[in-house]
């Protein structure tokens, strides 16, 4: 796991190589309250908030929480990164939701607005559909801000250490870190295989059948290449005591404060309170 600093830079190259719809996570160093919280506390609070908004039956609660969360994330200096992802993912989602649910939601009754359009006379947006669309949209907004806020204010390495200290297996931590590092590497490899196969006459604009064949011609060497490397990797890990059990010490120290513990309990309590309130 030596390449955690590398991983950050590499994920950028990954995104550059991919199409425009991809957005990027990026750890932003800082010293705000969010940065100093224990990563596990952030995860627990995020999950709690997501549960709460999925329990709430009306869009206003999730809307308020979205605004509050965004303010919190902005205070941690992550407004731009979170905002970019929110717009890139949220905008098509919002458009799709309001258009489809606003027009066709099965329980539509009261007309919100009718827009005159040529050809089909008029488009009628209904209150029920738009409210449903907003409910789903703000639920997902809370999910996105909470998780992105956690990711952006937490160094991946700290996250894995905090999880291991809470009893998550070091192997799970390894696969998470390794996967994050692997993707840019494999993306690079796939690029060079693509170029190599194009030099051998691979046509990316042939018939669909041909292109599926090309897909296999690209993926096979990619897989075989990585499989060869995995054997070496397994031996390297084994020689560093990967499968040994026993006490471990960590280079990085992740602190857990009483405040964090209180916050976690508070989140759990809030989830139950909301659940009770919604059911009653």
């Amino acid at each position: 796991m030596t390449g955690s600093m590398n991983a950050e830079r590499d994920v950028e190259t990954l995104i550059e190589g991919a199409d425009g719809s991809d957005t990027l996570f990026e750890y932003q160093p800082g010293s705000s309250l969010l940065h100093r919280l224990n990563p596990v506390t952030k995860l627990v609070c995020s999950v709690g908030l997501v549960l709460i908004v999925f329990l709430l039956p009306d869009f206003r609660g999730p809307l308020l929480l979205s605004i509050a969360l965004f303010a919190l994330v902005a205070a941690a200096g992550a407004a731009r990164s979170v905002g970019t992802v929110l717009v890139a993912v949220g905008a098509p989602l919002a458009l799709s939701l309001i258009l489809i649910q606003g027009l066709f939601y099965p329980e539509n009754e009261s007309i919100l607005v009718a827009i005159g359009v040529p050809v089909i006379d008029q488009l009628v947006f209904y209150v029920e559909g738009v409210e449903f669309a907003l409910l789903i949209l703000f639920r997902l907004t809370v999910l996105m801000i909470a998780l992105l806020g956690t990711i952006i204010t937490t160094h991946p390495k700290k996250m894995t250490i905090a999880l291991m200290e809470k009893g998550v297996s070091n192997k799970i931590a390894y696969v998470f870190m390794a996967a994050l590092q692997f993707i840019p590497q494999m993306q690079e490899r796939a690029q060079s295989i693509l170029v190599a196969q194009q030099a051998r006459g691979l046509d990316t604009s042939a018939t669909l059948r041909q292109r599926v064949r090309s897909y296999i011609a690209l993926m096979s060497p990619l897989l075989i290449g990585t499989l060869i490397a995995t054997e070496t990797r397994a031996l390297a890990l084994e020689s560093r005591g990967f499968t040994r059990s026993g006490e471990r010490t960590y280079l990085l120290e992740v602190r857990d404060t009483g405040f964090g513990r209180a916050l976690r309990w508070l989140t759990a309590l809030a989830v139950f309170a909301v659940a009770g309130w919604v059911i009653a």
Partner: peptide, 12 residues
């Protein structure tokens, strides 16, 4: 260990 090393490959 080999199984663990294969998991990130699948993700990739």
């Amino acid at each position: 260990t080999l199984a663990w090393v294969l998991i990130p490959v699948a993700v990739g």
